[in-house]
Simulated scan of single mutants.
Amino acid sequence: MRLDKFLKVSRLIKRRTVANEACDAGRVSVNGKVAKAGVAVKAGDIIEIGFGTRNVKIEVLDVTETVRKEEAKDLFRYL
């Protein structure tokens, strides 16, 4: 699954266009490398997102095309 779509489906970022802009600005990295929006994300990847002065680091547990709001938190875990 594309990185920008995963960020939206997992509800880490509210909209896909915002996720796309964050990737273009270099604020998102996958496994320690700055990533573009089209990078393929799979279970086990480590994603780091810069939100202003705060960094969020997560591990991808599952990749699903669609998921209900209550189950979105099961797609990743915070590190």
Score class of each variant (00 low, 15 high):
Asp74Gly: 10
Asp74Asn: 10
Lys69His: 09
Val28Asp: 01
Glu59Val: 05
Leu7Gly: 01
Arg16Gly: 11
Arg77Asn: 15
Arg15Gly: 07
Lys36Phe: 14
Ala35Arg: 02
Ala25Asp: 12
Val63Trp: 06
Val34His: 13
Cys23Glu: 09
Thr53Tyr: 06
Lys36Val: 15
Asn55Thr: 15
Asp74Arg: 09
Gly38Lys: 03
Asn20Arg: 01
Leu12Pro: 12
Gly32Gln: 13
Ala72Lys: 00
Val67Thr: 03
Asn31Phe: 14
Val63Ser: 06
Thr64Pro: 03
Gly26Asn: 13
Asn55Cys: 06
Ile47Gln: 09
Val60Asp: 00
Arg15Asn: 08
Leu75Gly: 07
Leu7Phe: 03
Arg2Ile: 14
Asn55Gly: 07
Thr17Val: 06
Arg2Pro: 09
Arg15Val: 08
Lys14Phe: 04
Glu48Ala: 02
Gly32Cys: 15
Arg27Gly: 04
Val28Glu: 01
Val9Cys: 00
Lys57Thr: 11
Ile58Arg: 03
Phe76Lys: 01
Lys42Arg: 14
Val60Met: 04
Asp45Ala: 10
Val9Glu: 03
Glu48Thr: 07
Glu48Ile: 09
Val28Cys: 01
Leu75Pro: 02
Lys73Trp: 02
Ile49His: 06
Lys33Met: 10
Val30Ser: 04
Lys8Leu: 03
Gly32Phe: 12
Phe6Met: 00
Arg27Glu: 09
Val63Lys: 02
Gly26Ile: 11
Lys73Glu: 15
Asn20Ala: 15
Met1Lys: 11
Gly50Tyr: 10
Leu7His: 01
Asp62Arg: 05
Ala40Pro: 14
Asn55Lys: 12
Ala35Gly: 10
Glu71His: 07
Glu70Leu: 08
Ile58Pro: 08
Ala37Gly: 10
Asp4Ser: 02
Val18Cys: 14
Val39Gly: 11
Asp24His: 15
